[in-house]
Design a protein around this nucleic acid. Structure first.
Length: 439
RNA sequence: GCCCAGGUAGUAUAGUCCGGUCUAGUAUAAGCGGCUGUCGCCCGCUAGACCCGGGUUCAAAUCCCGGCCUGGGCGCCA
């Protein structure tokens, strides 16, 4: 079939914009055939676009031969344009339908689709990701990414209003930022380079000049994780603030999270309905649990964690049952956190690092950073890292590094919470994990 | 890196434990035909699958071994 030309057609509205009040008005719609229900003398075509669906009703005896033959040639996923008249009716779900005057087939599609787009036979995550471009056409997928967009937009506006500047630090770096986590290597004109696992060191340097910065971008970790909450490439929402400590940025963070939840709840009612999910707006301040109190609570639940060690996932799952929403864990042992987290002045074995938890999942980590060069060098050594490979970072500390603090939100993990999805790959357009590099 | 589970039509599944009426069932999708108010439309017909290789056996989707692939858990972390 030869596709029609789009010509001078211009979309007048999205499917979702059509209301019974528009009865009799002519509209031009673009979209895709989602479903066809042909009853013989009357045919219903469900046209889908980004904003939803609308029923195109084709009564055989009341439309032109041209429209009848075009509508007859349609199949699922055909890309089409429809010019027609809105008709108010109590016989369609939204109280409206469109009677077509002209139909353009802009492109065809394979008859047998790799996944069911009507949702009658839902595909597994593997089949969905293999056919991701098509999978993303499903209204649930669209809802997920609209919610992510709204949440990120809310976070950005919130930070803009509080004087944060958006920055972009390098993805290609010469040495590890944190040690530990594995890095992807890159051939940089014959020199060995790495993909950044975090903007940590750069954003810290920027507080000397721009004072309050944030960055939204992808970062890379070459950990061979096999879980529902890890990706090799993930989006981090990072902030760093001069003349601030952990308490300051925690207060900012809980407001950011609250604002994102509130905005999504208000603006995404349609998407949340599609996903059958409810977003609860958390009250601030969030609960603040110290590492020591967490260990005590776990002990009461019969879970022993030796002091000084990181809390294992199983223990976090227990903790998540005790605290079923957002909560902070503070006062971690200095040794359990990264080298740049500031030890407490009064108790150096504890530090000013914190995690923001949601049930059993860590979604944010942050803290007061070390601003004093000698202490930073000592901490590097204690962590088994070579200060020499951090010399370019360390030099910044010779020029008036202010006290500062910051955090990093895992955007996909936040999106999981806001959308109720249980697999991080569902909330990632094209996820990269241990075994998936395509599509 | 370690551990567990699993690969049956386009998709999702039953059957596998305990080998044989499995000539592999069902739903949905697809193709053809029918139907003027569907909204998971309905009805009839058609076509469509046991991951690969080896072994055991009279007989393997089913049991054993190896491989490949996938999902999940742990560790690590966002």
């Amino acid at each position: 079939m030869t596709p029609d030309f789009i010509g001078n057609w211009v979309r007048t509205c999205y499917s979702a914009d059509i209301t019974p009040a528009m009865d009799g008005k002519e509209v031009t719609l673009f979209g895709w055939v989602k479903e066809i229900r042909d009853l013989g003398g009357i045919r219903f075509i469900i046209l889908q676009d980004r904003e939803g669906t609308i029923q195109i009703t084709v009564p055989r005896k009341k439309v032109s031969a041209e429209v009848l033959s075009k509508s007859n040639s349609l199949q699922k996923r055909y890309s089409v344009g429809v010019k027609g008249v809105v008709k108010k009716t109590d016989m369609s779900p939204r109280g409206v339908e469109v009677i077509p005057n002209e139909i353009k087939v802009l492109n065809t599609a394979a008859a047998q689709l790799p996944i069911d787009i009507t949702g009658k036979t839902p595909a597994n995550i593997e089949a969905r990701l293999d056919a991701r471009a098509l999978d993303l056409c499903q209204e649930q997928s669209i809802a997920v990414f609209k919610i992510q967009h709204v949440a990120l937009d809310a976070i950005r506006s919130f930070l803009f209003e509080r004087g944060f500047l958006e920055v972009h630090t390098p993805r290609i770096i010469a040495s590890a930022t944190e040690g530990g986590a594995a890095l992807f290597t890159v051939d940089y004109f014959g020199e060995k380079a790495y993909l950044a696992q975090s903007p940590q060191l750069y954003k810290e340097q920027l507080v000397m000049s721009l004072e309050k910065v944030f960055e939204v971008g992808p970062f890379f970790r070459a950990e061979a994780s096999h879980t529902r909450r890890h990706l090799s490439e993930f989006i981090s929402v990072d902030i760093e603030q001069a003349f601030a400590d952990a308490e300051d940025v925690m207060a900012l963070l809980e407001q950011v999270i609250q604002h994102a939840c509130k905005t999504v709840k208000e603006k995404c009612t349609k998407e949340l309905t599609i996903l059958k999910h409810k977003v609860e707006v958390p009250e601030v301040p969030f609960k603040r649990l110290t590492y020591d109190s967490v260990l005590d609570d776990l002990k009461k639940e019969g879970v022993e964690v030796p002091w000084g060690e990181d809390i294992p996932t199983e223990a976090f799952r227990t903790l998540g049952k005790l605290h079923p929403y957002f909560y902070f864990i503070t006062d971690w042992p200095t040794e359990s956190k990264a080298f740049y987290i500031k030890p407490r002045d009064d108790k150096p074995e504890l530090c000013e690092g914190f995690d923001l938890m949601w049930r059993w999942i860590e979604i944010v980590s942050g803290g007061t950073r070390i601003a004093e060069k000698d202490l930073l060098i000592r901490r590097l050594k204690e962590k088994g890292l070579n200060p020499e490979s951090f010399k370019h970072h360390l030099q910044a500390f010779d020029y008036g590094m202010p006290p500062h603090a910051g955090w990093a939100i895992g955007l996909e993990r936040l999106t999981m919470i806001l959308t109720g999805r249980r697999n991080i790959r569902e909330v990632t357009l094209y996820p990269r994990d241990r075994t998936r590099l395509t599509p």
